[in-house]
Write a protein that binds this DNA or RNA. Structure first.
Lengths: 295, 295
DNA sequence: TCAAAAGTGTTCGTTTTACACCCATGT
DNA sequence: ACATGGGTGTAAAACGAACACTTTTGA
C-alpha cells in the first residue's frame, strides 16, 4: 500500500575503504571498478562500496542496471542511525558501532511524483578486513574507485594540481583562495559521464568531502573515521599515501612527517622497524595511532 | 488521515537577524526575549525568529506554549527547499531567493511511535528591514536572543572567554586546540533550562555553528549569508560588533580591520565618512561590501 | 584639556612550505 | 657503487596576535 500523501524517507550509506595493491586480501578484479586497465598497479586506493540495484522493491531501480549506493527506506520504529546500521548489517554484513556520520540530505527529484523518496546520506569507513567477506554475493557488492596513487599522479601530470584543494573521480574542490572555491565540480560538470548516476555521484562527492576534513590536521584521523585501515602498526609513507588519496592531493613527505609526529601528533613510534624488506632503501620505522587524544 | 507506515518529514527554518539597539526599526520589547532587563542596552544583538506553537495541526504542539522554530510538513509535490521557502513566505512574509542553507537532520524521538516526524533544518539570515513588518501577528512571531555585545561582555567577565572558540545562549564550542573540542555544549549541558525545548535548542545551535563559518575569514560573509544586515555602507566598528556576536567571540579591533581590508579583503572604502556624529571620537570612514569576489 | 574612538606602525612567535643534505639498506 | 626511500636541519615566507602610538572628534 503506497502512501501518496507525503514523501517517504530513505537512508543511504556511503561506505569507504582503502587498501594498497599489495594488500593480502586484495579483492578480485571483477569486484573492482577502475579507471585504468586491470593489470595496472594503482598503489594506495580509496574505494566506495556499491551494489547492483537488483532488489525488486527498490525505489531507485534502474533498467540499465546502474550500480548504486546501498540504501533502504526508514521504518516507523527506526531512527535514521538505526536504519543505517541495518543497511550495514543486512547488506554488507558489517556490525557497526560508532562509526557512522551523517552527511547530507538529497531530494530524489527523478522519481515520479506519486512515489517520491527523499534520501539522507551517511558515510562510514571500514577496513578491508571487515569488507572482504561480503564482496560479490547476491547483490554483486563491489568497489568503485574514488581515488588512488596512480590517479593522483596522472591528474598531477595533466593539470596543475596545486590549484585544487582536492580532487577525486567523483568531483573536485578548489582551495579557499581560489576564486571558484566553494563551488562543487561533479563528473557531469567536468564533462564526464556519471559514475553511479547523478544522485549517487552527489552522495559520494559530499561524503568524500566530509571525510576529507578528518585528514587535514585539524582532527585525529583514526578516531574521526573510527577505523584503522592500515592495521596496528604502519609505515609513515603508507599513512602518507592514505592521506593523499583521501585528500585527493599530494603532500610533501617531510612536511607530512612533521604534521603527524610534531606538536599535535596523532601517531607515535611503535618501537619496531618494518621487516617485510622487499623494498629498497632505508628500513622504515613503524608507527601506531595515539589512542587517548580527543580533539 | 495519518499514514502510520513510514515517518513523515518536516522542514524547519532557523531565521537569524542582527541589529543594533539604536536601529531605527528596533522592535518593541514585547517582541524580544532577552537574558537581561528590558531597559538595558544590549549593543549589537544576534536574534533568532520564533513563533508561538499555536497552529491546530502542528505536530509539535506543546500545552505549555513553548516558542518554536517555524516548521511545516513536506508536501508531496515540494522539494525541501520549496517547503522552506513556503515557510518563509507564509509564516514570515519573506520572499526568499537564494539564501537558504541546509543544516542538519533531527530525529524527533519525543513524538509517539505512530506519528513520528523527522526534521530537516535550514537556516537563513534576513535583515531587520525585511522582518520588521511580520513581528507579532497571529502567530506571535518574536525574536529570541542568541548573543549580544553585552552578553559577550558578561560572559567574558565570568569565564575566561579565550578558551572558547565561540559562545552563545544556545551553546558553546571549544577551540580546536582544546581537549574537549568537537564536543557540543547546549544550554541543558551547562545546567540551564532549554530556551526553545531540547529540539529547538539543537536546531538553533547547529544552525548558528554553521553560520559562524562564514565569519571566520575563510569566506566572504555577506555572500555567505546572502544579506547585508548593516545596509549599504557601514562603519568597520559596527561590522566588528556583528562579527563578534555571530562568532560569539571578541576580536581585537586592529586585527579585525586588517582581516577585512588586507589581502583577501571583503570590504572596501565607500568614500564617505560617518556623519551621524552623535558619538565622540574620530569620525569613522564608511565601508561597503566588495560584491564581485566569490570565495 | 581630556576622554573616546579611528586608524597605523612594529614586533614577536607560530605555522607553512620549500630545499638541502645525510642515513641505511638492497641490488 | 649506486639507486632508493627514510629521516633531519634550516631558512624563507606567511600569518596571527599583541602592543604602542598617532589622529580626530565631542564634551
Amino acid at each position: 500500500m503506497p502512501t501518496a500523501l507525503y514523501p517517504r524517507l530513505s537512508v543511504s550509506v556511503t561506505v569507504f575503504t582503502a587498501f594498497d595493491d599489495h594488500h593480502p586480501l586484495m579483492p578480485s578484479h571483477s569486484q573492482l571498478s577502475m579507471p585504468v586497465s586491470e593489470s595496472e598497479r594503482f598503489g594506495m586506493g580509496l574505494w566506495v562500496v556499491t551494489r547492483k540495484d537488483n532488489e525488486p522493491g527498490s525505489y531507485q531501480q534502474d533498467p540499465e542496471g546502474l550500480r548504486v549506493v546501498p540504501s533502504s527506506l526508514v521504518r516507523m520504529d527506526e531512527s535514521l542511525r538505526t536504519t543505517a546500521l541495518r543497511i550495514l548489517r543486512d547488506e554488507l554484513g558489517i556490525v557497526g558501532d560508532g562509526r557512522l556520520r551523517q552527511s547530507r540530505i538529497f531530494d530524489a527529484v527523478e522519481t515520479t511524483a506519486d512515489n517520491r523518496v527523499i534520501s539522507v546520506n551517511f558515510w562510514a569507513f571500514v577496513a578491508l578486513e571487515e569488507l572482504g567477506p561480503v564482496l560479490g554475493g547476491r547483490d554483486q557488492v563491489g568497489l568503485e574507485m574514488v581515488s588512488s596513487t596512480s590517479f593522483l599522479a596522472a591528474t598531477d601530470r595533466d593539470n596543475a594540481l596545486e590549484e585544487y584543494a582536492g580532487i577525486s573521480r567523483f568531483g573536485l574542490r578548489y582551495g579557499n583562495r581560489h576564486p571558484q572555491a566553494q563551488q562543487k565540480q561533479l563528473p557531469r560538470d567536468i564533462g564526464g559521464a556519471p559514475l553511479l548516476g547523478d544522485l549517487g555521484d552527489d552522495m559520494v562527492f559530499y561524503a568524500w568531502r566530509d571525510m576529507r576534513y578528518g585528514f587535514t590536521g585539524q582532527y585525529e584521523p583514526f578516531a574521526f573515521i573510527g577505523s584503522q585501515p592500515l592495521g596496528e602498526a604502519f609505515r609513515l609513507s603508507d599513512l602518507k599515501d592514505l592521506f593523499e588519496v583521501v585528500r585527493g592531493q599530494t603532500i610533501q613527505a617531510d612536511q607530512f612527517r612533521r604534521m603527524a609526529t610534531g606538536t599535535r601528533a596523532f601517531v607515535e613510534p611503535a618501537g619496531s622497524v618494518d621487516s617485510s624488506g622487499s623494498r629498497p632503501g632505508k628500513p622504515a620505522g613503524l608507527f601506531k595511532a595515539i589512542k587517548s587524544v580527543r580533539r
